[in-house]
Nucleic acid binder design. Sequence first.
DNA 1: TCAAACATGTAAGCCGTTACATGATTCT
DNA 2: AGAATCATGTAACGGCTTACATGTTTGA
Lengths: 177, 177
Amino acid sequence: MSLKYAILVLLRSEPGSGYDLAQRFKLTLGNFWNASHQQIYLELKKLSEEGLLEYTVEHQTDKPDRKVYSITSLGISALQGWMRIPVSPPRINDAFLVKLYGAQPQDLEIIRAELVQHRIIHRQQLEKFQALEQFFIQADVARRREFQMPYLTLRRGIKSEEAWLSWADEVESTLFQ
Amino acid sequence: MSLKYAILVLLRSEPGSGYDLAQRFKLTLGNFWNASHQQIYLELKKLSEEGLLEYTVEHQTDKPDRKVYSITSLGISALQGWMRIPVSPPRINDAFLVKLYGAQPQDLEIIRAELVQHRIIHRQQLEKFQALEQFFIQADVARRREFQMPYLTLRRGIKSEEAWLSWADEVESTLFQ
DNA sequence: TCAAACATGTAAGCCGTTACATGATTCT
DNA sequence: AGAATCATGTAACGGCTTACATGTTTGA
């Protein structure tokens, strides 16, 4: 639904190819918006057909050709229009919580092992966010202003992971002590 | 993908109709697993065809007939099998964060209004969770043991909403002061 | 009288994932 | 020699949403 607008946001700040966008997703929006490269290529195609994007084929001697997409004025209008339409808070589908909810005594050891695995993932995610935060904090005022919005989304990620880890502690001490 | 197992979890603890399940979802798993009634009816049909569920038609004089589904032994095995397979942490698709990430100075007032709306939703959600928590805390030991797993998922909801609200405070004081 | 709750579904379409497919260059 | 990175896609399938569809009873 709004992969469309996520792409428009990224291309408004700088043109790029499908491959570029997939990379930029990982570093930025990817923390709160999921998108595979297949989906991105498909969406880029659709958006050009709709006239929200245009592209030029860049020939490269050393690497394969790449299609560089830019946002059109129609695309910018579409994005500005979307900004004004309220969105719903995200729907959550958390399979691990379904498991925990339905766990019986015989399942506890498995749950524990899976909790350990998830904890590793969340811890790593948190550390990645904290490293990015350090860059922001150490930047000069101009850069801090420039990256204010990305920084706020980063703060969301940090608080979210901290909350998860703190919950995991609660679960461990409730079930396994 | 695991709506299937969410339904099996609910039906293992008690048989019920599609309508019942839709209600039970709202009160329990619905906080971390989304499911519309259409989806539930479809899935119930599929699961009976697979032999994981069976149903009897209950005729009611005062209300429309209802199909009451129960889990079969095949269903119980499928659920136990699923418990042993690790699941991935949920993918997040948060449109509001995309907006915030891409917001320009002229969008700030709209963002502020939308933040206010989201805050109301999250606050209400938190209050609902806290009310449920009170029931648990005031229950006797036997009931607290019975509802230990649902309680832990409730704690997840509480921490998650608290983290969101605390982040919203940060956003407000960063952007609007 | 009208809304809400009870009760169960079908159909169309979109969105997204997984798997498949190809091929060059660069680094270890 | 093999893995990783650069680069772009198609196809099949499944999951989920939105809209459509119908009809009863109870309470305000």
